[in-house]
Write a protein that binds this DNA or RNA. Structure first.
Lengths: 169, 169
DNA sequence: GTCTTTGCAAACGATTTGCACTAGC
DNA sequence: GCTAGTGCAAATCGTTTGCAAAGAC
């Protein structure tokens, strides 16, 4: 589980991404949904990055890769990706949604850098248990929870990256 | 710290609310901001409830109390209230913001009922410490955090309140 | 060929802003 | 009276939807 910045794409990740792409094609077929060039291009972009991308990021990344798709198509395809379970929708209270390849990874928390917008993930078992107990203590049945820690990432604290979130390579 | 539902307004709360209203007037004077009827009406509504209200809720509550203010004024006044420190802005990822009287209460977490929209607050010291440590472990300087636990409140679990969030009395 | 997707443009909901008018102080 | 606030309407932003043309199977 790594951040949004450095794209240290390991052998293993390459395999995981390829698997996800194949899974999406299967999902489309299994649900009798046409496999269109746009859907594949959008899936490639979202499944191919570690980043937590916005719909606008996706449009930008498509443009860079030569492909393109209308705004409506991007949103509609992101919805399909979410339904397929390959992508998770996130709302960090920034005024827009972000989408993250789920990679079959269990629930995890997020650190959001207030300066560069970089998102880092981490998982903590104690937190899982704690939220269940806290909910119970207040007569709630916990369904899910969301923890976001806002702060400065290492780079920004050291004055390195004062720039806006870098789009992926 | 109680929920949004039952308005068990205790003696102490009445005093706290009165104090907040006075504090807002002082804030306006101290900053050479005109004390207008609209500002006071909006402050009364937001400071006078335990609920986490949306801008629309405020409009509705104003209407009920006989007062009224344009949408723009509501948003502009909410901003002043937030700047004064008497009110805190919240985003639970619902597509709109909520505002909560801060009452000088320290940071706390929220439980949000997926059925009736009720919000319950709680505070947990371990969580405060834990988030700082978690951030450090990932080379982040923690500024603040936000935890929301989504689930079913007791009433909704028992099938009691299937209705939308009740506006306050 | 039939049925779904696509893309554009219009529609949306929450929030913000421009500007003539009104009200604090 | 001078300055700041108010209200309305228009504008904005992210996202959704209607609909004719285009593409998957």
């Amino acid at each position: 589980m790594s951040g949004d910045g450095a794209s240290t794409t390991s052998e293993e990740q390459v395999r995981a991404i390829a698997a996800d792409r194949a899974a999406f094609r299967s999902f489309l077929r299994d649900h009798s949904l046409p496999v269109t060039a746009q859907r594949l291009a959008i899936a490639d972009v979202v499944l191919g990055t570690e980043r937590h991308v916005s719909a606008e990021d996706v449009a930008e990344m498509l443009r860079r890769s030569g492909a393109s798709a209308g705004t409506a198509t991007i949103y509609r395809t992101l919805e399909v990706l979410v339904r397929s379970g390959l992508v998770v929708e996130r709302d960090f209270g920034e005024g827009f949604k972000r989408y993250e390849a789920s990679r079959g990874v269990p629930h995890h928390e997020h650190l959001l850098c207030s300066v560069c917008g970089r998102v880092t993930e981490f998982r903590d078992e104690r937190l899982e248990r704690m939220t269940t107990l806290l909910a119970e203590a207040h007569d709630f049945s916990r369904q899910r929870h969301r923890l976001v820690i806002y702060g400065l990432c290492g780079d920004c604290r050291r004055g390195a990256a004062q720039r806006p979130p870098l789009l992926p390579t």
